[in-house]
């Protein structure tokens, strides 16, 4: 399964992904998708090596398929539910409603 690197931004806590040129991006659509978990781990290690992980907290690698990109709760991606909730927000209530401008 293809994979991505995720973390939370140190200053704001918001969910972030390793994107192009080692930048951290907040939209999962802009995350770089690696061929597998090992490749993603290598990218993360490289980022840490060059100090590119100083602005984030608790980085980790997880499985993700671009084709699977749907928002919760309507569609259930094959990515882990936890990762989907991190990517698309709470499945309930104000957190979600706020995003939908309700």
């Amino acid at each position: 399964m293809t994979a991505i690197v995720s973390a939370n931004l140190l200053a704001t806590g918001r969910v972030a992904y390793l994107g192009r040129e080692g930048a951290w991006v907040e939209d999962i659509a802009e995350a770089t998708v690696y061929s597998d978990a090992a490749a993603a781990e290598a990218e993360l290690a490289a980022a840490q090596q060059r100090g590119g992980a100083l602005g984030v907290v608790e980085p980790f690698v997880t499985g993700y398929t671009r084709a699977d990109h749907r928002t919760l709760p309507e569609g259930r991606p094959t990515m882990a539910l936890r990762d989907a909730i991190r990517a698309f927000g709470p499945t309930v209530g104000y957190g979600r409603r706020a995003e939908q401008g309700d």
Binding site: T12, E58, I85, R86, P90
Partner: peptide, 12 residues
């Protein structure tokens, strides 16, 4: 933590 700040899924 001793001052009530957690890191949760989406944010602090």
């Amino acid at each position: 933590l001793m001052n009530g700040v957690y890191l949760q899924l989406h944010a602090y």
